[in-house]
């Protein structure tokens, strides 16, 4: 049910991201989605990739602080009100969102939203019950 997300600590200096993407390119790893949380000094690069364990090992070997975080992916209708539906369900269930990011995939008609919440299981249950499909990791990795 959950999706493994790779989080990497990157200093806010030029060339750091390029170093990470180079590692992934060399390992022939495909990035499905990514986002960056940035502060003045540093950023946290968060990625969904096709081979999370391999990606993590390679990035760690290059000396980065890297961590796997379990997140959930949901499918929403790529139309006005699509995201709102999922948000309302979580709000009503009193589930807080730490962060989220969305992406679309050209072979799919929906939009995908990655959610980092306190309790994945509760969130997934509530969303499924409300009619918002939760997409398993295996599907996401192989998009």
């Amino acid at each position: 049910m959950v999706v493994k997300q790779i989080s990497v600590f990157v200093e806010n200096t030029s060339g750091r991201l390029a170093k990470v993407t180079k590692i992934l390119a060399e390992k022939n790893i495909d990035i499905q989605a990514l986002c960056i949380a940035d502060t003045t000094d540093f950023g946290i690069l968060r990625m969904i990739v096709n081979k999370p364990d391999e990606a993590k090992a390679a990035i760690r070997e290059a000396g980065f602080a890297v961590k796997t975080t379990e997140v959930i992916a949901v499918s929403i209708e790529d139309a006005p009100g699509g995201l709102n539906k999922a948000m309302q369900i979580l709000a009503e269930s009193d589930i807080g969102i730490e962060y989220m990011y969305a992406f679309t995939e050209k072979r799919r008609n929906d939009a995908l939203v990655i959610l980092r919440v306190e309790n994945n299981e509760d969130a997934a249950k509530a969303l499924e019950k409300g009619g918002v499909p939760v997409i398993p990791g295996e599907v996401i990795y192989n998009l």
Partner: peptide
Amino acid sequence: EVSPENFADNVRGLE
């Protein structure tokens, strides 16, 4: 230095 041990996947944790 951030280390694999103290690295938290959220800005709040690092702050």
